[in-house]
Design a protein around this nucleic acid. Structure first.
Lengths: 252, 252
DNA sequence: CGTATAGTTGATTAGTATCAACGCTAGTGG
DNA sequence: CCACTAGCGTTGATACTAATCAACTATACG
């Protein structure tokens, strides 16, 4: 887990160039942001004047649970995990985020989770204050962010069902299918799915231990439902079996 | 669990008076709705012209998972549970909702959970279509609904930590404290907390079985942390012990 | 008064967690 | 260039929490 200091991102080391840098005028990056997708060119240009962006290395802590919640972030490229910690170290990963995803929303005061990059990641950020102003000005921006938040909520509810009621096999199957669909949606191949996160991350996302995740993977492999070319990739050999497992309708 | 037909709410039996009734002009009910709380009198009056309300009996199914999602609901008085089902009957309760809470949001198409009253409940409803129009007209309405959705998301993330990483004792302690705080917030006593839901509901909310919930209650009672005057009420005898349990910092 | 339902309690089982050892890969330094 | 080390992942043995199965009690209901 990531021992990087939160303030790192304000240093000028080449790895972590200034999220605090003055906004640049180039709109290309902003246009890719999902929450700007439906805006007019003019609106995007205005938005671009208030955003900062940066390329962050892998395993980089963007902010920590409890930090003053000043900014909202959007992922241009890369991947991020969000997690909550208990005082004794137990961890629950709230979500894995990819290109186009937004994070950092919350109410009054501090972030309620830690955000950390999984791979080298290009982020965009806006201050809450300026974003509020923008939302007043561009109703479509607010509508878009609202819609994205509803989507997040729906996903969170789906995850509650997984965490509360599914078995280890079902959890893993659901997880793999979700990753596969997400990859396909982003134009990447659906079958050799990349796992940019560690087994520990997967375990903490599914409410399992590392060992159980590993055992379940090898078990599914033995049953020829998945293939494991290496630890970072999974082949969905039998997707329909995986679907049945995920829904709890599997025979075995 | 509730065998009531979804169409019931369109019948004219006295128990379930018409959610489809023509909007009434009385603003009193609408004004109590949390998502109208910050609106001007004029805005509330406009909103009142597009809403329907009804008094529903306990254990009444407002809508089911998969039903076409036409309406958004707000609870005036009473309590509602939201849940998701798996094909084999496993159930996960997504949330218990009370006065001022809103539900029914979702994306394209069907509701992604079933909504059912726990006690006799007074509901207000709006069509998505009209609410969208209203949001265009009254930015403060949209902002309010947005904020409430973010709150729901934060609560869902907290629940993920509970479901994925907490023990049965910790889950029950967290649940009781949450109910207590909610009651206090609504001006009701914080200590003899009312449990309007069954043990089965609590179990399906916490990702446990009925038996484990029951055992954990009696265990906490034996340790003089709570009191159980009857199945529907809990006295928080030792709230600090409960807090330690909930956070996982408890000694025993 | 009999019946059905919700809740509690007990005995046993099962699914994961825990503890422990080992293999693999990558980075490090001699 | 290669042994050494550290971290991640896998596998095995055992323990333990909570689930399952079952019986019983209390309460509400007809």
């Amino acid at each position: 887990m990531p021992p990087l200091d939160f303030d790192d991102h304000k240093t000028d080391r080449p790895d972590a160039p200034d999220l605090s840098a003055p906004p640049c005028r180039n709109c290309d990056v902003v246009r890719e942001l999902a929450f700007c997708a439906d805006l007019t060119h003019d609106e995007i240009r205005r938005l671009a004047t208030v955003r900062c962006h940066a390329q962050l290395p892998a395993a980089f802590s963007v902010f920590r649970e409890g930090d003053p919640a000043d900014h909202v972030y959007s992922i241009s490229t890369g991947a991020v995990k969000l997690y909550k910690l208990m005082s004794d170290g137990r961890r629950q990963i709230i979500g894995f985020l990819f290109s186009g995803d937004m994070f950092g929303l919350g109410l009054d005061g501090g972030y309620c989770y830690t955000a950390e990059t999984l791979v080298p990641t290009q982020l965009c950020r806006f201050t809450h204050r300026k974003l509020d102003t923008m939302m007043d000005e561009f109703p479509r921006l607010e509508r878009k962010m609202f819609t994205m938040t509803v989507k997040d909520l729906v996903a969170a509810q789906e995850q509650m069902l997984l965490l509360g009621r599914k078995t280890a096999r079902e959890k893993v199957a659901t997880f793999l299918l979700k990753l596969s669909r997400r990859a396909a949606q982003q134009g990447q191949p659906a079958s050799p799915v990349a796992l940019p996160m560690s087994r520990a991350d997967i375990a903490d996302y599914l409410g399992l231990t590392i060992e159980t995740v590993s055992r379940t993977f090898t078990q599914l492999k033995r049953e020829n439902i998945i293939g494991l070319p290496d630890a970072g990739h999974v082949v969905l050999t039998d997707e329909s079996a995986l679907r049945e497992l995920a829904e709890g309708t599997a025979s075995g």
